[in-house]
Each structure stands twice: as C-alpha cells, then as structure tokens.
C-alpha cells in the first residue's frame, strides 16, 4: 500500500475513542466524512504528526511513521489547514518560503508551473506581488493549496479546501487535484462538507460517525 494507517486511535470530545484503519493505493483519494466536530480535522492533524495519536501506526510506502523523522514526514504527508496560515510577505514569498527550510533545501519551485497553477485556479497574475495578509479567504485557500503542491508532497491532507471557494473555483480546484493525483506516487485525504468531489478518480470513503457506532474489531 502506498499510504495507510492501522488501528489509529484517538479521542475526540467526550465520546468513546476512535480506532481507525484505512489503506490507499497510489492515485487514490480517501474522503473523510462525518458531522461537524466528530474529529475529521483531528484525524488529518494526527496523520500530519501535528498532534499525537493515542495508539496505532501510519505507513508511507510501507514505512512506519516512527522510522521517518517528523520534518521529512510532514513535508511528504503535507497538511493544508481549513483556514491556512500564510507567511509574512507577498504571495511569491509564500511560495518561496518552504524552500528556505533545510528539509527542502536544494529544491526550488518551477516558476512556469506556479504560474500555470495560478491561472488554472483563477488567480490573477497581479496577486503574485500582493501582501499575503490582504488576500480574501478564497484566494488564501488557493494560494495555500498551490504552496503545498509546489513542495511535491506524496500525500496531501486537505481540510475543507473548497469551503471558501465559489462554484467556478471549486471546479477548477478539483480539476487540479484530479490531475495531480494522476502523477506517480501520490494520494490524498479530503475532508469536505459538500459532495462536489464525486468526479475525482480513485475515490474511497471513511465515515467517522459510522466507525464510532460499530468500532472495528
């Protein structure tokens, strides 16, 4: 399996803890469903190693997560928050910043690809030099998505990526995500409240409310 987790347990709220397992082949996308507050974001944050699980293991290309240093894991299994934090500076600075980190040193983003992504996602070229703090919610979430794609992660953890987008931008977003998944060695997890991802290839589903009702053996 390309990306998987086994018996991943964590508590969310005051209810009984989850015990979750799932496995993705390259090119597949796992849609995490369930009512608000059930723990969908928590699951993504745990898989990004931003907070600990109380048990269980995630595997990237069959390698258990404890064998991979957390910075390398996080750059490979990249989490995009629902309300992404942009860095100080312009949009261009935001695209460049990750490449100043040691984990990604020696690589740099392809400006032609960045420009193409911006265009496909309906972001005007003038945005490039704009102060990132002045972006609208929809612009910020697309910039954060591009920023994440540029570092070439293996797995994308997308938390409500389209919540701030209008109809056209949503379609464009899923177009880019679908194309990205066709590349070699890629998979994604998606939390979404709407059903507009249904055209994506390789869809799988994990319903958190269901799995709580019938805990896996």
């Amino acid at each position: 399996m390309f990306f998987s987790f086994r018996d991943l347990s964590f508590a969310a709220g005051s209810q009984a803890p989850f015990v979750l397992s799932a496995a993705l082949k390259a090119g597949e996308i796992l849609v995490v469903r369930g009512p608000s507050g059930v723990g969908k974001s928590t699951l993504l944050r745990i898989l990004a190693r931003l907070q600990p699980a109380s048990g269980g293991t995630a595997y990237l290309e069959e390698q258990p997560w404890q064998d991979i240093p957390s910075p390398i894991w996080r750059a490979s299994v990249h989490y995009v928050a629902q309300k992404p934090a942009l860095f100080d500076g312009s949009v261009a600075d935001n695209f460049a910043k990750p490449f100043s980190l040691r984990t990604l040193s020696g690589t740099s983003p392809d400006p032609a690809r960045t420009g193409a992504l911006m265009e496909t996602l309906k972001l005007p070229p003038t945005l490039w030099e704009q102060d990132a703090r002045t972006l609208s919610g929809g612009e910020a979430s697309r910039v954060a998505f591009i920023r994440g794609l540029l570092i070439e992660p293996k797995v994308l953890l997308l938390d409500e990526p389209t919540a701030a987008l209008d109809e056209t931008s949503r379609t464009a977003f899923y177009g880019v995500l679908g194309d990205w998944l066709k590349g070699a060695g890629r998979a994604a997890l998606l939390v979404s409240h709407t059903d507009d991802y249904l055209d994506l290839p390789g869809l799988k589903f994990l319903d958190l409310a269901e799995s709580r009702r019938r805990p896996l053996p």
Binding site: P71, R74, H78, Y79, P84, A85, L86, F87, L101, L104
Partner: peptide, 16 residues
Amino acid sequence: AAEIEALLTFGATPWE
C-alpha cells in the same frame, strides 16, 4: 501558533 504549524507542515524543524 498557526504560522508555526504551517511551517512545520513544510518540514520545518522546531528551530526553523
């Protein structure tokens, strides 16, 4: 905190 976590998701070390 949000910005620090964003840096972490790109593979930043705690120091970075």
